[in-house]
Nucleic acid binder design. Structure first.
Length: 292
DNA sequence: GATAATGTTCGATC
DNA sequence: AGATCGAACATTAT
């Protein structure tokens, strides 16, 4: 990190921020900045990021006023007047933020001109994200597979125990499966399991009652803490639309392969493995396998 | 050039 | 009905 005042700060838009705390941060920012604004014009530059017909998408939003912004897991739900709902999922590289009267940034995939002259920009380098307009949440393709929100609708101990059930699937893979609980992604899954001392490969059915209790509490703690830090930003970018997050400084295992475990009294070394095609980070010393 | 990246969906194969 | 795995989507950074 550079020291304040030394080098000129680069103004670069921050990289994508896809898990629950990052989306919640965007939700709060956008609520502050665009609530009550009317969308006067919609331009779709990359039709594949829109679910359904891009022209229908654009005309459904034109003339609508933004009245509330909600979130379910990693999905942003922008409610407009006339029962119009804009559902957004950023996947890996999506971003949504207002800009002034200036040229659109690179990788702008959709642009919503607001009634105050600003433009709400959807950027997405990889074009993996999706935008969708529906009249009712139940119609949403983006929302249809999502389970309970990890923060606002967290399961009770009994409920999580029931969800884990007799599954043989690894607990880390379960946490990434958004059909059960939605909002926890690859960073926070590793962090939660490390804090609970649970091995990421542990089959769900082996978890004890104490493990279940720890998972629920730690999930709340980690997500809340991360929201308090405005999420995790990997890279030291500065942004023109909001500050970067700071939770990266609190990460204990994510991207720390080969480093000493930070748990007090633990002499282990953080390992990286791959589960379901995604990197998992854990400490073999303090995340021991349960006896079968 | 190879590899990995905070995500989801779909189809094939158990 | 499940689970499970790989591929696909597509670009950037290291």
């Amino acid at each position: 990190m550079s020291c304040a005042g030394d080098k000129p700060r680069r103004i670069v838009v921050i990289p994508p921020m896809p898990e629950l705390p990052e989306i919640e941060t965007v939700r709060r920012d956008l609520t502050d900045r665009i609530l009550g604004r009317k969308i006067v014009r919609v331009e779709v530059l990359a039709p594949q990021i829109v679910e359904g017909d891009a022209d229908a998408f654009a005309s459904a939003l034109a003339g609508r006023t933004i009245i509330r912004i909600d979130r379910l897991g990693k999905a942003l739900i922008i409610c407009l007047d006339g029962a119009v709902i804009l559902v957004c999922h950023f996947r890996m590289t999506g971003q949504l933020y207002p800009v002034g009267e200036e040229p659109l940034p690179s990788h702008t995939r959709a642009a919503f001109t607001l009634d105050d002259g600003r433009t709400l920009v959807y950027r997405d380098a990889r074009r993996l994200g999706r935008l969708e307009v529906v009249g009712d949440r139940a119609q949403s393709v983006i929302l249809r597979n999502l389970g309970r929100d990890a923060l606002e609708d967290s399961p009770s101990e009994d409920e999580l125990a029931a969800l884990l059930g007799k599954r043989r699937t690894a607990i880390k893979v379960f946490l990434l499966d958004q059909r059960h609980i939605t909002g926890v992604g690859n960073i926070y899954a590793s962090e939660i399991l490390h804090r609970c001392g649970i091995h990421p490969e542990e089959p769900c059915l082996n978890l004890t009652r104490a493990d279940v209790r720890c998972l629920i509490g730690t999930m709340q703690d980690v997500l809340s803490e991360a929201i308090g830090e405005r999420g995790t930003t990997i890279s030291d970018y500065v942004t023109g639309w909001g500050r970067v997050g700071d939770f990266q400084y609190r990460l204990r295992v994510y991207r720390r392969a080969g480093e000493a475990c930070v748990r007090e009294g633990c002499r282990g070394t953080v390992q990286r493995t791959v589960q379901a095609g995604r990197s998992t980070y854990y400490c073999p010393q303090c995340q021991e396998r349960r006896r079968t």
